[in-house]
């Protein structure tokens, strides 16, 4: 029964929307900055899935090119973000977001 189902782009978009929402809720709920970063990666991945789905649905290579650039931005963001986390950890011996809310050294 399931095997005969036709997978339309909408299915992929719904999965991407669910991934994006889970990532967003995780970003708001978690306190560990490393896990918050992982949730941002989840949201970026959901957006990438949407881009690829529309590239296929509209038969346009532009969507996949944008995914390439998103991956570059994600890589740069992780490199700088983890460096910031390491710097904060050196200073405060903790990576909990609440402890650095005052933006004081």
């Amino acid at each position: 029964m399931i095997a005969a189902l036709d997978i339309t782009p909408t299915y992929y978009l719904v999965v991407a929307a669910a991934l994006f929402t889970i990532g967003g809720v995780g970003l708001l709920v978690r306190r560990n900055t490393l896990v918050m970063f992982m949730c941002i990666e989840l949201m970026l991945n959901a957006a990438n899935l949407t881009f690829v789905t529309f590239a296929k649905a509209l038969d346009d290579i532009g969507g996949q090119v944008i995914v390439f650039f998103t991956l570059v931005v994600a890589a740069a963001e992780v490199a700088v973000g983890l460096a910031i986390i390491v710097a904060i950890f050196r200073r405060r011996q903790d990576v909990t977001a609440d402890d650095v809310s005052a933006l004081r050294g």
Partner: peptide
């Protein structure tokens, strides 16, 4: 076949996302 693969992967992807959170 594609549908089965899709639903298995969708379950895996969402389970992984929930695991992260």
């Amino acid at each position: 076949m594609e549908a089965v693969l899709f639903f298995v992967l969708a379950a895996g992807a969402l389970a992984g996302a929930l695991g992260v959170v």
